[in-house]
């Protein structure tokens, strides 16, 4: 009894089990296995993408650091140059000022000299005029009597002869 398979049970089991395989195969195992496989793939892809993103990030970071370093160097150079330029400008301004001052002094001296000469000349002229006036007056006074005139003329003549 225990080891005699029943015909009816074999019949129902064959039908029911085959039906079960078909139904579960189509509506359960296929979608389940497919979505597990799909999920596994997407997980693998996500992990790979994360790894790549990490690498890119590191690269980007390195790049950034380099950029910052470069910017610092450039900034330092700029500052240095500006400093130099400032000093140059100050130096130039100082030189120019000195030159200008020298020029002004020189012109002033020249003017003074010129004015002085003009004043001297004028003084000379006035002295000459005054001298002539004095001489005239003296002569006029000397030549008032004839005698004296004669004497002087003689004397002058004499002087000329000696010469």
């Amino acid at each position: 009894m225990l080891t005699t398979p029943g015909l009816g049970l074999i019949f129902w089991m064959t039908i029911a089990f085959l039906l079960l395989v078909v139904l579960l195969g189509k509506f359960a195992w296929k979608p389940i296995v497919n979505s597990i496989n799909k999920r596994n793939e997407s997980i693998a892809m996500a992990l790979q993408a994360a790894e790549e993103a990490k690498k890119d990030m590191l690269k980007l970071q390195a790049n950034n650091e380099q950029l910052i370093a470069e910017a610092k160097v450039e900034r330092d150079a700029l500052v240095r140059e500006a400093h130099k330029l400032k000093e140059n400008i100050i130096e130039q301004a100082r030189e120019k000022a000195t030159e200008e001052a020298t020029n002004i002094i020189k012109t002033a001296r020249e003017n003074i000299h010129f004015e002085k000469m003009a004043a001297i000349n004028e003084l000379k002229n006035q002295i000459a005029t005054i001298s002539i006036d004095i001489a005239e007056k003296l002569l006029k006074k000397e030549l008032e009597n004839k005698e004296e005139q004669k004497q002087l003329t003689d004397k002058l003549l004499k002087e000329i002869k000696i010469n």
Partner: peptide, 30 residues
Amino acid sequence: LDFSITKNVVALFISIFILLIIFIPLAKKY
């Protein structure tokens, strides 16, 4: 020839029913 729905056939149908109501909604969930 005996093709009766015996105790084991009923148990067979119950087990198949349970398997179907477990795994088909599970596939939907997936």
